[in-house]
Amino acid sequence: MTSVTRRRFGLLALSAPFALLMSNSARANLIETLLARAQIPRHDDELWVLVEDERAVLSVYRGNALVERFSPVSLGRAGAGPERLRGGNVTPMGEFRVNRFNNESDWHIFIGLDYPTPAHARMALESGLYTERDYEDYFAYYRSHGYPPQQTVLGGFIGIHGLGGADPDVHASYHWTQGCVAVTNEQIERLSELIEIGTRVVIR
Results as ranks from 00 to 15, higher is better:
Ser105Arg: 02
Asp106Trp: 00
Asp106Phe: 01
Trp107Gln: 10
Trp107His: 13
His108Glu: 08
His108Ile: 01
His108Ser: 11
His108Pro: 00
Ile109Met: 03
Phe110Leu: 03
Ile111His: 05
Ile111Glu: 09
Ile111Trp: 01
Ile111Phe: 01
Ile111Ser: 07
Gly112Val: 06
Leu113Ala: 12
Leu113Glu: 10
Leu113Val: 06
Leu113Asn: 10
Leu113Asp: 08
Asp114Ile: 11
Pro116Trp: 05
Pro116Arg: 13
Pro116Lys: 09
Pro116Cys: 04
Pro116Ala: 11
Pro116Asp: 07
Pro116Gln: 06
Thr117Asp: 09
Thr117Met: 09
Pro118Leu: 10
Ala119Ile: 02
His120Arg: 11
His120Leu: 03
His120Lys: 09
His120Met: 04
His120Trp: 06
Ala121Thr: 02
Arg122Met: 14
Arg122Asp: 10
Ala124Asp: 04
Ala124Thr: 09
Ala124Leu: 03
Leu125Ser: 04
Leu125Gly: 06
Ser127Asp: 08
Ser127Lys: 11
Gly128Phe: 05
Gly128Thr: 06
Gly128Cys: 09
Gly128Met: 03
Tyr130Arg: 06
Thr131Ile: 01
Thr131Gln: 12
Thr131Lys: 12
Thr131Arg: 13
Thr131Val: 00
Thr131Ala: 07
Glu132Met: 10
Glu132His: 11
Glu132Val: 14
Glu132Leu: 13
Glu132Tyr: 05
Arg133Gly: 03
Asp134Gln: 04
Tyr135Gly: 06
Glu136Thr: 12
Glu136Phe: 03
Glu136Lys: 14
Glu136Val: 13
Glu136Arg: 15
Asp137Ser: 06
Tyr138Gln: 03
Tyr138Ala: 04
Tyr138Met: 02
Tyr138Phe: 15
Tyr138Glu: 05
Phe139Asn: 00
Ala140Pro: 01
Ala140Ser: 15
Ala140Met: 03
Ala140Phe: 02
Ala140His: 08
Ala140Trp: 00
Tyr141Lys: 00
Tyr141Asn: 05
Tyr141Pro: 01
Tyr142Met: 04
Tyr142Ser: 12
Arg143Asn: 02
Arg143Phe: 10
Ser144Phe: 10
Ser144Lys: 15
Ser144Tyr: 11
Ser144Leu: 12
His145Thr: 01
His145Ile: 00
His145Leu: 02
Gly146Trp: 12
Gly146Phe: 12
Gly146Lys: 14
Gly146Gln: 15
Gly146Ser: 13
Gly146Ala: 13
Tyr147Asn: 06
Tyr147Lys: 15
Tyr147Gln: 14
Pro148His: 07
Pro148Gln: 08
Pro148Phe: 09
Pro149Asp: 06
Pro149Ser: 01
Pro149Lys: 03
Gln150Tyr: 12
Gln150Pro: 11
Gln150Gly: 13
Gln151Ser: 14
Gln151Pro: 00
Thr152Gln: 04
Val153Gly: 00
Val153Thr: 03
Val153Phe: 02
Leu154Lys: 08
Gly155His: 11
Gly155Cys: 10
Gly156Phe: 11
Gly156Cys: 12
Gly156Trp: 10
Gly156Glu: 10
Gly156Asn: 12
Phe157Asp: 15
Phe157Met: 15
Phe157Ile: 13
Phe157Ser: 15
